[in-house]
């Protein structure tokens, strides 16, 4: 259970998240939509522990633990995974080495035996097949020269390998062709379980046809301004965000949104 209360975060003194509340129950899938620049990626990165963002106020509790007090890598080892909107290239470091180091860091934390090279290869090859990645991607540098879609698949591969308790997918569907979209959605659905929670950030209701969310939220100007079921996504697709911004301007609507 993830419980975000009154979260305020800024970058270089500029406020971005402005009193955000969100509750994600264990086993639930929540979709977050919202206009460009509204703070979706900021929320994802604050939860993951990027220290270029400053938390000014509020709290985040994760299964009763103060998430904001945990170092970035501890959050990851404890099962928080972020699929990046813009996956980062690390030249000179092979994807295989990176993935193995990550998987073993998490396994160590869980008290599971580390994979040796053989076990790891067996596992990673199986997962790669499932997300439609060729083996050569193991031996290339992390994300270097990967196409947009290949980078996103590599994120899903990492998610599958790390088996997170809380997965945050930041526009993992953007820039994907229709087949890739299905593969990504399948990857997510395979991980869906009563023990796992997911936050899926997207601009397109299309993704939500494949990954059916329990709740849909609209993030605007640093807050959740509307929450609803899947039908909210359809409504947004038809009407855009303008009507919500207008509604938000009246105090009554604001109260209702949180």
């Amino acid at each position: 259970m993830l419980d975000i209360r009154n979260l305020h975060a800024s970058v270089d003194g500029k406020p971005i998240l402005r009193g955000l509340d969100l509750h994600v129950g264990t086993g639930e899938v929540h979709a977050i939509m919202g206009p460009n620049g509204s703070g979706k990626s900021t929320l994802a990165q604050v939860l993951a522990g990027r220290d270029s963002f400053t938390v000014e106020d509020g709290s985040v509790s994760w299964d009763g633990v103060d998430l904001l007090a945990m170092p970035t890598e501890e959050r990851a080892r404890a099962g928080l995974f972020l699929a990046f909107q813009y996956p980062v290239e690390i030249p000179g470091v092979s994807n295989a080495y990176f993935l193995k180091a990550a998987v073993n860091a998490v396994r160590r934390h869980r008290g599971e035996p580390e994979y040796d090279a053989m076990d790891f290869l067996k596992r990673v090859k199986a997962e790669m097949k499932a997300v439609g990645m060729r083996e050569e991607f193991l031996y290339r540098s992390v994300n270097e020269g990967f196409s947009g879609g290949e980078k996103k698949r590599n994120e899903v591969l990492q998610m599958a390998l790390l088996e997170p308790r809380l997965a945050i997918l930041d526009e993992t569907d953007s820039g994907l062709d229709i087949d890739a979209l299905r593969t990504v959605a399948d990857g997510v659905n395979r991980l869906r379980s009563p023990e796992r929670s997911m936050i899926v950030i997207t601009h397109y209701q299309r993704l939500l046809d494949y990954i059916v969310p329990d709740h849909v939220h609209v993030l605007s100007r640093g807050r959740i301004v509307r929450s609803g079921g899947r039908e909210l996504a359809h409504e947004l697709e038809e009407r855009g965000y303008g009507w919500i911004d207008e509604a938000q301007a009246t105090p009554a609507a604001q109260g209702a949104a949180s």
Partner: peptide
């Protein structure tokens, strides 16, 4: 900083991440 954050989000320490990048280099 984005490379370090990426690696740390995957469970590596900053030190491991720098080492890994330098070592690859």
């Amino acid at each position: 900083e984005d490379q370090l954050f990426y690696a740390m989000q995957r469970g590596l320490t900053a030190e491991d991440a720098v080492s890994m990048i330098v070592s690859g280099f």
